[in-house]
Design a protein around this nucleic acid. Structure first.
Lengths: 218, 218
DNA sequence: GCTGTTGTTATAAACTCGTATAACAAGTCT
DNA sequence: AGACTTGTTATACGAGTTTATAACAACAGC
């Protein structure tokens, strides 16, 4: 207990660890990504100042220093994750041919790509959902993200309807239904990957759109 | 600290708490229900030997005694919850008029009733999902429950198709899609109850069925 | 009524967690 | 080069958690 630090035998000083000073922005991101890795690894139990600090290779005090309380860090991690996945999907859409049909197809394909169909991703979301239900701060973040997501779907479906000349009664509600369908399929697959194949998921989405074409939502 | 137990001032003995001896079956149920209340109250943080024991009005050792490790208790608690909700929905179906249409309507109505549209219910489910992803034991339970649920939906949709003379290509996959839609809407509503009204959810489900009628899944 | 089983209480030991606080040093400004 | 700012380390403390173990007492069987 009173032993001198073994890493620096030549001096009697405490031999404090060396460190790089990062910009707050950079450090926050490092901590956020470390938090995500911890959640992937240990689920709810991974949300811990000590574990995250160790994962990021820093001391615990840094988290307090940059985020105040740990919930703030987790909320930040949620934002990283959520915008990351959204960007990934939007990238696919933008790379597709600029027709409504092709863009919607790309959106669906990306939603059932290995990037999304990943149990680790659900593992992170499950932890987030748990927090959303009890933390107003997290709830705000989720609400914002959900709104943006639905707006994107709204755009894709609206464009398709305009191009193919069919009508949709309540576009926003309809977009919510399509979002729910995809989320539900994603959830079911992650919980039980043997239930159906990814291409079946794509097909079921296309069936839904076929129903839209045939006026079921007019 | 050394004060005698105030509830039994007349004697100097340690005054151990009195207790009723319950059958293992009864006690397990009490503990399971206490666990649910704790999860509802505190989410993942509520999953704690101490909290659950306190909620049930017993000491911590009892949980170890009856369940060994706490995960086993949570799994048991889920079974209580899961079968309870399923029974509640099936009851509505059986009380409906015995036509395919009426039975399906009852199923949908029950799925969007206050019993299901309850953030506390999702709170419990989220904890369960987190365990499914990390415990094979829980995964088995979920798989069974999902299979049963989809089979029920399959029956309802198949009967409707037969009665109304429309065709469904892959009945099981189609039932999974409808299940996913309902689960997705339920999840979205619980996370953000202001997004849409319960009756909108019912309507969106009916729109989906209208698509089915129009041959989008043939 | 006495005895044995075991459901149940009570308690302790070893950990982990979150937060507060003080000391220190990296980088910046002058 | 010297001083200042503040990002960062190091440490301590109290609360809460799991698990193990011993003591007790409720109830059943004889």
């Amino acid at each position: 207990m009173w032993a001198d630090d073994l890493t620096t035998p030549k001096t009697k000083t405490k031999a404090r660890a060396r460190f790089r000073r990062e910009t707050p922005e950079e450090r926050r991101r490092q901590l956020g990504e470390a938090a995500l890795r911890c959640i992937v690894k240990n689920g709810n139990a991974g949300v811990s100042v000590r574990q995250i600090a160790a994962e990021a290779g820093v001391t615990q005090g840094l988290i307090t220093h940059h985020f105040g309380e740990i919930n703030e860090l987790v909320a930040y991690a949620f934002d990283i994750m959520s915008t990351g996945l959204m960007q990934s999907i939007l990238k696919s859409v933008h790379e597709a041919e600029p027709t409504p049909k092709a863009r919607l197809d790309a959106f669906i394909a990306a939603s059932f790509s290995p990037i999304m169909l990943d149990r680790d991703v659900l593992g992170v979301w499950v932890v987030f959902w748990g927090l959303i239900l009890h933390s107003p701060r997290m709830s705000m973040s989720q609400q914002q993200e959900y709104t943006d997501y639905v707006a994107t779907v709204e755009g894709l479906l609206g464009d398709l309807a305009a191009a193919e000349r069919f009508t949709i009664g309540d576009l926003k509600l309809t977009a919510m239904a399509f979002t729910a369908l995809m989320d539900g399929l994603w959830l079911a697959w992650c919980l039980n990957p043997d239930a159906f194949r990814p291409e079946d998921g794509v097909r079921l989405c296309n069936n839904w759109i076929e129903g839209l074409r045939r006026g079921a939502y007019a």
